[in-house]
Design a protein around this nucleic acid. Sequence first.
DNA 1: GAGTTTGAAACT
DNA 2: CAGTTTCAAACTC
Length: 790
Amino acid sequence: MNVDEEEEEEVRQSKLNIWDSPVFNYISNLSPIEPVKSGHNNHTFSSLTFASPPSLFTSPQISSFSETRFAIRRHQFSDPSKPESSQSEYENKTSEGAQVATQSEQLGCFNSGNSAREVTNESSTENLELAVEFPSTLKYDCGSPDGNFVPSDAVKADVMPELASTELSLVQFVADDSKEGNCSFEREENLRGICRVEENNGMAGCSWVKVVSESNNIFGLDSPITGDHSDEQEPRMVDSGTISFISNVLDDNLNDLGKTEFVCPTGSCEQFGMRESGVESEGIGDTRETDQTPAMLSSTLLNKLVVSDSCDLVDEKRQKYIKSNCKPSSQLHRGIRRRSLVFERTETHERKSICESKGSSSGSIQSNYKVASADNDLVQNKNGPSSLSKLPGIGLHLNALANTNDGTIVKIETRGSESQQTSTPKMISNTSLTSDEVPQDICSSDNTLERALVTWDDEAQVLENAYQTSECLVGEERKSEPVGESLACKRCNCKRSKCLKLYCECFAAGLYCVEPCSCQDCLNKPIHENTVLETRKQIESRNPLAFAPKVIRSVDGVGEFGNGFSYESWHPFLARRYGEDDTKATPASARHKRGCNCRKSGCLKKYCECFQGGVGCSLSCRCMGCKNTFGQKDGTEETEFDEPKPETYEKLVMDVSLETFKDQDLLITSSEISRPPNEQQPNLIRKILLPSLPSVESSHQFGNRENPEKTTLESHLQMIPEDGTLETLESSCQQTSSGVKSTSPNSKRVSPPYREFGSLTARRSGRKLILRSIPAFPQLSTDHESSDFP
DNA sequence: GAGTTTGAAACT
DNA sequence: CAGTTTCAAACTC
């Protein structure tokens, strides 16, 4: 180490190029970016599965400096979880495009790509310059532990002098980059000041907050660096929701560590700090960036995980520093685990931000965020998906999420992991976009979100919040809707149905009609909530799946939870949590739930729901002359009566089904089946689902307020991964009807296609599989195929 | 924009 | 449960 120090001194004195520094090279070689280039998904998974070394390196200096876009960009670069960042892409970060892409990608993961791009583009020239001039910095400083390292002066002097220099250089450029704002400061002194500030912060866990705050003051940021597009919004972006989020994370971490000190991962935390410290209005990053704070934090946490991998490789002193300041891996884990949750909350938070920007009250929303935050762990660890109900817009509006072809949903579903790849030209995102620059791009998003928020099956509080948010969104943001986004906005045109039948796309999607709709005598509005709920209830009584997504996407054997639930088609949270990929990437495995019945369109027009959903026709379809370009019914993939090939998915489903039924099937069959359909299904479902959904039964909290009696069952339908659950439900219904008699009052919808085959047709989709697994019940199945069951 | 076609939803 | 009607989106002109 002495040698290193001496060398460092020499380096300083001689002012050698930092890039030539052996230390830097060494550090650069240790960059964790490449090793962890695995996709976001993998990351999430690994984070959930494997312990990871503590991470540490944060670069608050840069970020805290001013929290310029550059600073944020560094985080983004350092984000190892970028799934879609291909090797080449990653290597090309020195180019503006790469930067933009990376940033967009990163931000897109947080559902904020739109604004992110804009932000990046605004200063593209400067950023480009910066990137070109300091490619290594961008590349390594961000990706390597150093990039995120928060060295004190002493540490820097001892350990990473070159890095310090680098940071200074970066600071310089940041300052240059931020010339737009009135950011004036003596970078070196200020930098040291920051370091001192940090040093002086006894509690490392909170140091970054102060650092940010103080550094901000030190730098004398008089106006936002990105003030050109954010000054108005930033103050409002400082909300309790963010603070709450931060608090949750920090508290959680601290609790886990037993008050162990930890270092703020990266500048994203600084954003929090700034916001929390009330300095946010002083130009620390633009609104959108700060609005992504939760996501950034989560990403930071994720980064930490990755970065931490290289901790062991860092030199001794750094390790010391790390040990004394890094979070334990468990903590990191927690942070990562929370990541997807963070996204969830980010989304809502962003909505709220928008709402706030509109001057609407958000108190209840914020409280709701807190609740959601507190439930995050519950969601993942305890109650499973059930807790998700607390988040607005994710209840039953599965159609809205899953059936939308416009990409909005795709974006939402994958924003946590695949933002770049899935980034659609539509620029749809849930980003917290400032009102003054967003409207057009966000319109569709607004609509989607709005609708999601305004869905009528949320719980009371959520609903109220949703209304608030919706009002905000509807009020102004959704004014202009870009052409091509209309799909995201289900503008119904109902004239006779009063938008209370499934004819109405809005209603079918579980959404209230909104302004763009051209419906007449519409009753599908919040003011007619009772009517809507009642109607919906009636429809569901006939067909429990009436509001389920029509298109089921499943990755063969990959996307299943093991109990038949396809998280891919489940709502975005689960999908993201488990690193789901773009659902559009698996059209072959996606199928229309019930299948189409086309006769003339050849399944080549949007009359065909399969075609409309972008999926191929399957055995479920009864179409004639199918020419579906996404996959014909009698295509090569499968034949109607082919013996099904057990797939992972099948096995999983079957196993679960068998296990689930093993202990209860007898109880179910004779007594349940003989019941009237309406009574029977819930019981069947409950018995089928509950075993795999512990603690759900008691979770009355998920029951619909409007329909107390359908608490558990329907709650499950809403909260359980739609595919699996609904499929299970459906199959159970089918099975029941098949084995005994038509049980479902609306058997047409529940299982029309299968009857055509005279028996339960063995199929490949999850649905088929479940269906097939059901015959395993002796009593339930008069079908010979039950013998085929493994 | 009006009219037609289409197939899902609803009804009988 | 099959057939019919209703309905609204999709499509065409």
